[in-house]
């Protein structure tokens, strides 16, 4: 409490839990991270919402965030992919098809939790429900990408999403970083000029140096 910046102290004394305040302060940082990865590094992922929300889901899974988070993420993608292959020949309209996919994933995750419970992985069985629901709903993004860009691209995008989320998770669960945030919350404002810079960046993305390596070598 004594390290808190006056603003944070004011917020906390107003009755807002410190966790809530910290998470809200972290959102701009995660969003900036995603923007950075897209524009400068060239890692696409599923937009900005999905990697951000998955990052927070991973944090919500703590203390076993990584283990269970990754397991559930991978199961969702895997089951989503299989369901799509089964449903394809029925030629259903988009939303009903996604609804069925979500149902199948829900059942599968339930099975996974029960399975975990019986094998004495109580941490898995007792995993909080909201991050699980978040993980399930991102399967829509996956199905949409699968339809539009093909399974291979969708899998790459899913892996990229998980990758960015893991980096975000590492940053956000770093205690020194959290302490820094509550001590100097105004530093969050720097994300705005940083994003203006990223938004005006017209240089090649790092991934494009690889993509166009042939041309660069040629010159």
């Amino acid at each position: 409490m004594e390290h808190y910046h006056p603003i944070i102290r004011f917020v906390v004394e107003g009755g807002v839990p410190i966790q809530t305040a910290v998470l809200l302060l972290m959102l701009p940082i995660v969003a900036t991270l995603v923007a950075f990865f897209r524009q400068i590094v060239g890692i696409k992922a599923f937009g900005i919402y999905t990697p951000s929300i998955v990052t927070f889901a991973l944090i919500a899974f703590d203390p076993n965030g990584l283990k269970y988070g990754i397991a559930i993420f991978a199961s969702v993608i895997f089951v989503g992919m299989i369901t799509r292959f089964i449903l394809r020949r029925f030629r259903l309209l988009y939303l009903p098809r996604v609804a069925i996919t979500l149902s199948v994933i829900s059942f599968s995750i339930l099975c996974l939790l029960v399975f975990g419970g019986y094998y004495h992985r109580t941490g898995l069985a007792a995993a909080p429900i909201f991050p699980i629901l978040i993980m399930i709903t991102i399967s829509e993004k996956f199905v949409a990408a699968q339809i539009e860009k093909g399974t291979k691209t969708a899998l790459i995008l899913a892996a990229e999403t998980l990758g960015i989320s893991l980096i975000g998770y590492a940053l956000l669960s770093w205690s020194a970083f959290i302490l820094f945030l509550v001590e100097y919350p105004w530093t969050i404002l720097f994300t705005i000029p940083l994003n203006v810079f990223i938004g005006k960046w017209t240089g090649l993305r790092l991934s494009e140096y690889v993509r166009f390596a042939r041309i660069i070598r040629q010159k």
């Binding site: 017209t202 090649l204 494009e208 166009f212 041309i215 660069i216 010159k219």
Partner: peptide, 18 residues
């Protein structure tokens, strides 16, 4: 060297923005 040589290549950012 790579930066200099790549200056003539159009990337996604520049294509969209410029």
């Amino acid at each position: 060297e790579a930066l200099r040589k790549s200056s003539g290549i159009l990337g996604m950012n520049a294509r969209n923005l410029e």
